[in-house]
C-alpha cells in the first residue's frame, strides 16, 4: 500500500478552508506543511478540516504547531474541524487540545472565524 494524502482548498465567506484527506505522519506531514504554509497570508483565517484524517502522529502535531505560529505572526487565526476521538486523545496527551479552537462541524468553525474578524 502506498501512502496518499490529498489537500484541497476553498474559500468560504473570506475564510480559507483546507481539507486534508489521508494520514498526517512522517511520510506526509512535511508536504502538507509546504502546501498549507503557502495559503497563510497576512490576516488569513484558516479552517483545517480534519474530518478525513483517521491517523495523526507527532509529525502532524508539529504541523499544527508550525501553522498556528505562522498565522499568529501574520495576525491570522486558525480553527480545527472534525477531530476523531483518536486525534483528540493524541492532542490531549500532549497538551495541544486545550490550546486550539476545535469544532465538530465545518459550519461552526467557519462561522467562529468570521466573527473573529469583526
Amino acid at each position: 500500500m502506498t501512502e496518499t494524502m490529498e489537500i484541497s482548498t476553498r474559500t468560504l465567506d473570506q475564510v480559507t478552508v483546507v481539507e486534508i484527506n489521508g494520514n498526517l505522519d512522517g511520510t506526509t506531514a512535511i508536504m502538507a506543511e509546504e502546501i498549507i504554509g503557502d495559503h497563510c497570508q497576512e490576516g488569513t483565517r484558516l479552517v483545517l478540516d480534519l474530518r478525513q484524517v483517521s491517523y495523526m502522529s507527532s509529525m502532524g502535531l508539529r504541523l499544527l504547531l508550525l501553522i498556528s505560529r505562522k498565522l499568529a505572526d501574520l495576525h491570522g487565526c486558525m480553527a480545527l474541524v472534525g477531530l476523531s476521538d483518536d486525534l483528540k486523545e493524541t492532542m490531549s496527551i500532549t497538551g495541544f487540545l486545550d490550546h486550539f479552537a476545535t469544532y465538530d462541524a465545518l459550519e461552526e468553525g467557519v462561522s467562529a472565524l468570521q466573527q473573529e474578524k469583526e
Binding site: S58, L61, R62, L65, L66, S68, R69, A72, T94, F96, H99, F100
Partner: peptide, 9 residues
C-alpha cells in the same frame, strides 16, 4: 502554543 518547543513529542 507560542512557547512550546517544536518536536520532541
Amino acid at each position: 502554543l507560542e512557547s512550546r518547543k517544536i518536536g520532541g513529542l
